[in-house]
Simulated scan of single mutants.
Amino acid sequence: MIPRINRIHHVAIICSDYEKSRHFYTKVLGFVVLQEVYREEKRSYKLDLQVGELYQIELFSFPQPPPRPSRPEAAGLRHLALEVDDIDDAVAAVKWHGVPVEDVRVDEYTGKRFTFFADPDGLPIEFYEK
Rank of each mutant, 00 (worst) to 15 (best):
P3A: 11
R105N: 03
E102K: 13
E19G: 10
A118C: 14
K42M: 15
K20C: 11
F31L: 00
Y38V: 06
F116I: 02
I8Y: 14
E36D: 08
R113W: 06
D48T: 09
D89W: 14
A92S: 15
E41Y: 15
F117L: 10
R39M: 03
E19A: 15
R43W: 04
D107M: 06
E58R: 02
T115V: 14
D88K: 14
L80C: 02
D89R: 15
D17H: 11
L82T: 00
D17R: 12
P65A: 07
Y25M: 00
V84M: 07
P72I: 08
V99I: 12
Y55L: 06
K112Q: 12
D86A: 00
E126Y: 10
Y55H: 13
F60A: 01
T115K: 09
F117M: 05
D48C: 10
E53N: 14
V51C: 07
I87T: 03
P65G: 12
S61D: 14
E108T: 07
P72A: 03
V37F: 11
R22M: 05
E19L: 15
D86I: 07
C15A: 08
V101K: 06
V32T: 10
K27D: 02
S16R: 15
D89P: 05
T26R: 02
I57K: 02
D119T: 04
E126A: 00
E58G: 08
Q35T: 03
F114N: 04
V101L: 06
E19S: 13
A75D: 11
R43N: 13
V28G: 04
A118E: 14
C15T: 12
Q64F: 11
P124T: 04
P124S: 04
R4W: 14
L29N: 01
R113E: 03
Y45M: 12
P67I: 03
E102S: 11
F24K: 00
D107N: 13
R71S: 11
L77N: 09
D119M: 09
A81G: 08
D103C: 08
K46D: 08
D88T: 07
P63E: 05
S44H: 04
S44G: 09
L49E: 08
